[in-house]
Write a protein that binds this DNA or RNA. Structure first.
Lengths: 196, 196
DNA sequence: ACGTTAACAGACAGGTCTGTCTAGTGTCAG
DNA sequence: CTGACACTAGACAGACCTGTCTGTTAACGT
C-alpha cells in the first residue's frame, strides 16, 4: 500500500533513464547497456516492455512531447491577454533553455542522427505539427491579420532560439526571439481589434 | 600531364565521399568502411591522410565551412546596396535549402551526435562565430542603429530557417525568414543614414 | 637503374552494439 | 500451497566499427 509502489516499475525507471541519457548524449551514442545500468533494470525487462531500441526511443520522444505540451499549456493558462498567451510559448522555452541540462530540441537532435523515415523523424513531425497548430490558434486569437503566416514566422523564431541557445550555450537567444515575436505580432494585429 | 591528374588524389576522393555520406547520413552512422568504399580508396590511405576518423570529420566540416563561406561571399559581392548585401546571406541559404540533398546545418547535425567538447562542437563554434561577425559587419554597413543586437536576431532567423527547411522539407521557411529579416533591418536603420 | 612515395587490397585484433536465451528470485491471488 | 507474473543476472551470438599491419603495384625524380 503506502504509495503505489515502494520502487518505481521497471518501465518507469527505463523511461527516466532513457530520457536523461538520450537527451544528454544522443539516442545513437547511448547504448542499451548504458540505459539498463542507469535504470537498474535487467535487459530482458527492457525488451519485454518496449520490444526493441526503437520502441524505447519512440516512448522517450513521446514522453518529451507530452512534457513540453504540459509546460507550454500551463504557461499559457496563466495569462488572459491573447498577446501574452502567445508569447508564453517563448517564456516556456526560456525557462527550459536556462537549465544547465538544456541540450536543444530532443526531436531535432534525435532525427539528426537517424534516417529520414525513422522513428525520430516521425515523432519530430508530429511534435512540429502540434506546435505550428498551437501558434496558429494563438495568433488568430490575438487578432493576427494572417495567422498562418505569422505562425510560420514564429516557428522560425522558436526553432532558431532553440538552436542558438544550445549551440552558443546562451539562453539570451530565446529572449531575443521573444522580442522579435512581440514586434511581429504587434505589426500583424488588425488595429480595429485592439482593445483599450 | 593533360589535367593535373588522370584521377583525383586519394585525399580529394576521401573528402568528397565523406562530404556526401556524412552530410546525408550523419558522421556517427557512416563508418570508415562506407567512406573508403564510396571513395574507392584503401583504408591505409585514409589513416595516412587524416590520422583517424576525427581527423576526417574535422576536414569534412572545415570543407563545409569554406564552401558555405565562398557561396555567401559570392552572393554578397553581386550587390552594391548595403541592405541587399545583408539579405544576400539569406538568398544563399535559400539556394542551398532548395536542393533535394539539403539536410540542414552540417555543423549542428554533427554536434548533435557528439559530446560537447568534440571536433564537431569546435568546428560548429568557429563557423557560428564567423557567421555572426559577418552579419554584424553587414548590419553596421547597412546603417543599423544597433548592429550587434540586429545580428543576434538575424542569426536566430538564419538558424530557424535552416531547421525549418530541413524538418518540414520545405525551403519556404528561408523565404519567410528573409522577409522578417528585411522588416527588422528597415525598422533598425537610422533614418538619417538612408540615401535617396 | 634505383629509391622514394603514394596508393592499392585485404586480413586481423579488440572492442561495442543489439537482441535472445537460460535460469533464478520475490510477490501475490486464489 | 501453488501457479502466474514481473523482474533480475548474466552468458551468448552475430553484426559492425575503428585502427593496425602485411604485402603489392605504379609513377616519378635523380
Amino acid at each position: 500500500m503506502s504509495v503505489t509502489s515502494p520502487r518505481r516499475s521497471a518501465r518507469e525507471r527505463l523511461l527516466a533513464a532513457a530520457d536523461e541519457l538520450f537527451y544528454a548524449e544522443g539516442v545513437h551514442t547511448v547504448g542499451i547497456d548504458r540505459v539498463i545500468e542507469h535504470a537498474g533494470v535487467a535487459k530482458a525487462s527492457l525488451y519485454s516492455c518496449f520490444g526493441n531500441k526503437d520502441g524505447l526511443v519512440r516512448a522517450y520522444l513521446q514522453g518529451r512531447h507530452e512534457q513540453r505540451r504540459n509546460r507550454i499549456l500551463g504557461r499559457i493558462e496563466q495569462h488572459d491577454d491573447p498577446s501574452d498567451r502567445l508569447l508564453a510559448v517563448f517564456d516556456s522555452l526560456a525557462e527550459s533553455a536556462a537549465k544547465p541540462s538544456y541540450r536543444g530540441c530532443a526531436f531535432y537532435n534525435a532525427s539528426a542522427e537517424s534516417d529520414p523515415d525513422s522513428v525520430a523523424a516521425q515523432e519530430s513531425a508530429a511534435s512540429r505539427a502540434w506546435t505550428r497548430a498551437l501558434l496558429t490558434d494563438l495568433a488568430r486569437e490575438a487578432g493576427a491579420a494572417d495567422p498562418a503566416t505569422l505562425a510560420a514566422q514564429l516557428v522560425i523564431l522558436y526553432d532558431g532560439a532553440m538552436v542558438g541557445a544550445r549551440q552558443d550555450h546562451d539562453p539570451a537567444a530565446v529572449l531575443n526571439a521573444r522580442a522579435v515575436a512581440a514586434t511581429l505580432l504587434a505589426a500583424n494585429q488588425t488595429p480595429s481589434r485592439v482593445r483599450p
